[in-house]
């Protein structure tokens, strides 16, 4: 699998977009709207021309301002899934998928479970179905790179959770350099392995979701990342709660009801830190050594195992916390939101 190399500058209306990014595996570019995320995808696809720089898949240059290379969009081996899916309204699902080159389209319809939709027009599909058609269409060309622009933004909240789970397992199985653009940190964390945060045209931080939550380099990243995402398997308990076995074996409970593979969302400011297990209403406890202590404004982000807590700088000083100290991180079952991850 060739990786995608992206390095370019482009003057936009309010700021200058300057990006250097290596895409191998599934990578997210997350950030607020207007940060230049869509321009990055359009530049990679050849729909938008950068001022200077280089875009290359493995050894093949698609754009190189020094060598005066600028391949047309149709010459780049790219599958782009548009935010509103951009399905051709006058063609059937089958013709949409076959548009980019038909050989694999039959297989793809079967693989995405949309064979029965084949004769329908996009206007007759639900949001989730449209997304599957758009993905199948983008993949039918057998592209070297997959680009997704806000893949979940066009869906309502209910469909979103379900489609996110579907998309996550699908992207993992593709074995294709994939760049997902999203304004939602939660989506980025659920869909990808690495997340780059783009603000005003600059990549301010790049890392795993856990890295970003634990050690945000700027207050913006701290605000933006918001929540911990712990993955595990959920099963109902007898008393109406849900018990989640995290990947490291820790058991936590939530008031949300879900079963199967889930993500548990916990906000850092809802996690308390103590030297010994407190006796209070908190039901969830994660024991471990402090891996990092990162000040964010007048607060401190503390990473313990898979979890990041945010406490005031004053509390941290009072407890005399140092990296390596054994502590207990506690949070409430009612503060633990579950999202399905399929």
């Amino acid at each position: 699998m060739d990786s995608l190399h992206v390095a370019f500058t482009r003057a936009l209306r309010a700021f200058r977009l300057e990006l250097e990014l290596e895409v191998d595996g599934v990578v997210a570019l997350a950030g607020p709207s207007g940060a230049g995320k869509s321009t990055v995808l359009r530049t990679i696809a050849g729909l938008s021309k950068p001022d200077s720089g280089r875009v290359a898949l493995g050894e093949t240059s698609w754009f190189d301002s020094e060598r005066k290379i600028d391949l047309r969009p149709e010459e780049r081996s790219v599958g782009l899934v548009f935010q509103d899916y951009a399905l051709f309204p006058h063609m059937s699902v089958a013709d949409n998928v076959a548009y980019g080159g038909g050989k694999r389209s039959g297989d793809l319809l079967a693989r995405f479970g949309i064979e029965l939709l084949a004769p329908l027009k996009p206007g007759e599909l639900s949001g989730g179905e449209r997304q599957r058609v758009a993905l199948a269409r983008a993949l039918a060309r057998d592209p070297g790179v997959l680009l997704l622009d806000e893949p979940l933004a066009a869906l309502d909240a209910h469909t979103r959770a379900h489609v996110r789970a579907e998309l996550r397992s699908l992207l993992k199985g593709l074995d294709l350099p994939t760049l997902v653009v999203t304004h939602s940190f939660e989506d980025a964390a659920a869909l990808t392995e690495r997340i780059g945060v783009l603000v005003n045209g600059r990549l301010v931080q790049m890392g795993t979701a856990a890295d970003l939550v634990a050690a945000p380099t700027t207050p913006f990243v701290a605000d933006f990342t918001g929540a911990n995402l712990l993955t595990g398997r959920a099963r109902p308990t007898g008393d109406g709660l849900t018990e989640i076995a995290l990947v490291d074996g820790t058991l936590i409970v939530s008031t949300d009801r879900l079963t199967g593979q889930v993500g548990a969302v916990v906000h850092p400011w809802e996690v308390g830190i103590a030297r010994a297990q407190p006796v209070d209403s908190m039901q969830n406890h994660v024991r471990g050594a402090i891996e990092s202590l990162v000040p964010v404004a007048n607060r401190v982000r503390i990473r313990v195992g898979p979890l990041t807590a945010e406490i005031t700088a004053e509390s941290a000083a009072r407890l005399g916390l140092e990296p390596g100290d054994e502590v207990v991180a506690s949070f409430k079952a009612s503060g633990t939101r579950l999202i399905p991850l399929g």
Binding site: G46, L47, P73, E74, L80, F82, G101
Partner: peptide, 9 residues
């Protein structure tokens, strides 16, 4: 744009 990225000139 979609048509172009799908390989159509």
């Amino acid at each position: 744009d979609a048509s172009r990225t799908l390989g159509a000139g």
